[in-house]
């Protein structure tokens, strides 16, 4: 799927966020010289193709008191990752769960699951649940706590022309 020039203009207008006004799509349409219907039709089309996942808030978990943010990483056999990844991804406290390639010898882990909590003890308790679930399939693991947000802007298109 590719985006056309109108989509692009719309993405550029919205990548910083939606205006927080009663009729945000009409406001964006005004700014861009489009009609509200064109804006909402385009957004609906981009949702259906997956270009837009949802229109929502990006919460700052540090500011919300979720100061312990752990990226748990696991080494499990490639033959079992689909089954185990699905089970871990279904845990209610796991916010993101991915299979990613190992980078040997630096990095032996292929399953990544994000876990957040108010304290590291809380995160460690959740990590222990994942460890239990993996059982003998776990060949190794680690946890990387985030200590600082260095940047959080989301996607930015490069200016064209």
């Amino acid at each position: 799927m590719s985006i056309d020039s109108t989509d692009r203009v719309l993405i550029e207008a919205l990548q910083g966020g939606l205006p927080l006004v009663p009729a945000p799509y009409a406001e964006v349409a005004d700014r861009l010289g489009l009609t509200e219907a064109v804006v909402t039709d385009r957004l609906a089309a981009m949702k259906s193709t997956g270009v837009i996942r949802r229109i929502a808030a990006a919460p700052n978990h540090f500011q919300l008191g979720m100061t312990a943010n752990g990226m748990t990483v696991w080494d499990v056999g490639d033959d079992r990752i689909a089954e185990l990844g699905a089970q871990i991804g279904a845990l209610p406290f796991v916010t993101h769960c991915y299979e990613r390639p190992r980078a040997l010898p630096d990095w032996p882990f292929n399953l990544f699951a994000m876990v957040h909590g108010e304290t590291r003890e809380e995160v460690e308790a959740k990590r222990a649940q994942i460890r239990d679930l993996l059982g003998e399939a776990r060949r190794g693991d680690d946890i990387l706590y985030s200590t600082r947000i260095l940047k959080k802007t989301g996607l930015r298109l490069r200016k064209r022309g």
């Binding site: 993405i11 919205l14 990548q15 910083g16 966020g17 939606l18 927080l20 957004l43 981009m46 997956g50 270009v51 837009i52 996942r53 949802r54 229109i55 929502a56 808030a57 990006a58 919460p59 700052n60 500011q63 919300l64 959080k152 802007t153 989301g154 996607l155």
Partner: peptide, 10 residues
């Protein structure tokens, strides 16, 4: 508390 409100692009 929220860093951004708007579409999440993929």
């Amino acid at each position: 508390y929220i860093t951004r409100f708007g579409p999440f692009f993929d």
